[in-house]
Design a protein around this nucleic acid. Structure first.
Lengths: 131, 131
DNA sequence: CCTACTGTATTAGATACCTAATACACAGCT
DNA sequence: AGCTGTGTATTAGGTATCTAATACAGTAGG
């Protein structure tokens, strides 16, 4: 699936939440597909089942996953996508954080852009592999 | 100086540390210049003095700031800059985080790049203002 | 000397997060 | 029915962060 980054200050449940959204956005997880069970993913990520459960619950609330209690969890038939406003806000926020640290380490815009493009390819490729 | 982002999962002391590095990298804080006192900056950022102190101490350890106890804190005469290796690693890490969330919200590379460029300008401009 | 400002240190409390260990309720399958 | 695998809930303990309040130590200036 994906990996947890221990150096990322973001809480693990949020990393999981984002990871699932990523897989769906990339098409690695199609609508109706089943996602790993809470315990399976927890073992896979070397993480506590409660943490995975928290991420799944948030995704279910957000209409991204569909939970069938006792049976399993699936990608919703029509996975809800963030509205344009929220989407732009999130993107802008993330861009600000990236730009801030880039400037702090003395990088130029060009460096940051190149590194970003590499990251895009790398993340996408990594996901299509384990799909 | 700069602002604290409450939505940023990074701890406040790290945001302060990065903020100071940013100001120096942009030339808004020249070598030898005095930085606000612990209490002043704390009041300015609406934050506890201990949190600011922690950031200053780390920056002093890193050779970025020079502390004169009882007198004040100043930008080091030759502010140490991260080595190329660490710098690239940090940039790469930050780029990965940005790319990850960008993909998660369904953004394309072009969108992410544009937003990044805007963020660069915005952050730089914001700093030169309050310099 | 005294006051006012520096950075520093300590203690305590609150909150968020993660882990671990148990349970419980539901679905599917033999 | 019994077993196994689902998601869910609860309790406890540990760690990191932030805040608040209070001191202590050093410097500058009236």
């Amino acid at each position: 699936m994906f990996a947890i980054n221990p150096t990322d200050p973001a809480p693990i449940w949020r990393q999981i939440e984002e990871g699932v959204r990523r897989l769906i956005a990339l098409g690695a997880l199609q609508p109706g597909a089943s996602v790993p069970s809470v315990r399976d993913l927890a073992r896979d990520l070397r993480v506590n089942p409660n943490t995975v459960a928290r991420a799944y619950q948030r995704l279910a609330e957000g209409g991204v996953l569909s939970v069938k209690r006792g049976e399993g969890t699936y990608v919703a038939d029509e996975p809800s996508v963030p509205k344009r406003a929220e989407r732009n806000e999130a993107l802008r926020d993330a861009a600000t954080r990236y730009a801030s640290t880039a400037i702090a380490v003395g990088a130029e815009v060009q460096d940051a852009v190149e590194e970003l493009q590499s990251a895009f390819e790398r993340v996408a490729r990594e996901h299509r592999r384990h799909a």
